[in-house]
Design a protein around this nucleic acid. Structure first.
Lengths: 182, 182
DNA sequence: CGGGAAATCATCCGAAAGTATGACGACAAG
DNA sequence: CTTGTCGTCATACTTTCGGATGATTTCCCG
């Protein structure tokens, strides 16, 4: 039991705590479908740049001015575009985080009547089991049900016998496992 | 005396181990240092490319051959480098993707450490609370932990005090509500 | 090195829990 | 009408719990 406790914390807590931090709100930005889009954009930019290059070449031939200036312009242009694209792609990819939070469906708890009959647990005993599970003492249960404490003791005794429990805490545990109490 | 010696080595050690173990499975992929690295690489490539450009310009001036070819070469070069960089960056970032698989049906219990500190519940006390919740008696807990029954009673007494519980069943109930036990 | 937290162990004592047994009334089924 | 189950109550007894208190050891922190 305790081991299970620790085990679950071993697999659950660190993962959430270390990787996603307390950011419970889902910060998902899935970009899987956008990849192709970016490739397209990239190609488009490439085309535009090639066209620009052509233009530059054209002016180059026509005007035939300082070659170094035009070359530098081209270099700057492409370098800038490259950096821009790199950053853009980087930024886009950077945020890709898939996060699925456990929903933990609320257990509606349906009383296991079959088990009740199977064990021969009477309604009164079940009622007392429920009160025991809330942490009440025999006396408090007796007052709550307007009966004597001895009655509660006999009920609980028979209940423990039917559940195969030795203590009330054990009975609670068994009752939970058997679906007798939520 | 001998018993105490064994006790300290059998109960203290495992306890510490149990509580620190959960942090071991860390499959983290730190990316922070890689970013700057990439920026450096990028800058380096930029320098190399500029140098290449200069070279091309030089040959351009000297040989004065077909301008279109050199321009195309430059464009291709830069385009290729841009694509390569983009892909590389993208790839690097993609590695950082975190996939958190949801645990649908499993118990999502996460120990409430804040409450622990808030109430001043020690690890040992929490351990005993877990054992109490399973329905074990003080004696059984003592045997399980290799300590004396009195020790268990002391621990549970302080635990009840901290939880504001009067009975062990009540303590279990409170512990569940407070997220101390599953 | 002192001080404090944590864990350990002990003793005493009253309260609560659990066991064993018997008994009584209500009520449904045979 | 008899039988059986269920709920109720009681008495007597044993076991377990829980509170109060004090002591010791270990470890960490200032």
């Amino acid at each position: 039991m305790l081991k299970r406790l620790l085990t679950s914390s071993k697999t659950t807590r660190p993962r959430v705590g270390k990787f996603t931090e307390p950011d419970i709100p889902e910060t998902r930005l899935s970009k899987a479908p956008h990849v192709k889009k970016h490739i397209l954009i990239y190609g488009l930019c490439g085309g535009i740049l090639i066209a620009a290059l052509k233009l530059v070449e054209y002016r180059f031939l026509v005007v035939e001015h300082s070659v170094a200036i035009y070359g530098g312009l081209i270099a700057l242009l492409f370098a800038g575009v490259g950096i821009w694209l790199g950053l853009k792609l980087t930024k886009t990819k950077e945020v890709v985080i898939l996060k699925e939070v456990a929903v933990s469906g609320a257990a509606p708890f349906a009383l296991n009547e079959g088990r009740l009959r199977e064990l021969g647990v009477t309604p009164r005993e079940l009622e007392i089991l429920g009160l025991i599970a809330t942490g009440l003492s025999n006396r408090e249960i007796a007052e709550k049900l307007f009966v004597s404490e001895n009655t509660v003791k006999t009920h609980s005794s028979r209940l423990f016998d039917k559940l195969g429990a030795k203590r009330r805490t054990h009975a609670v545990q068994v009752g939970k496992e058997l679906g007798l109490i939520p």
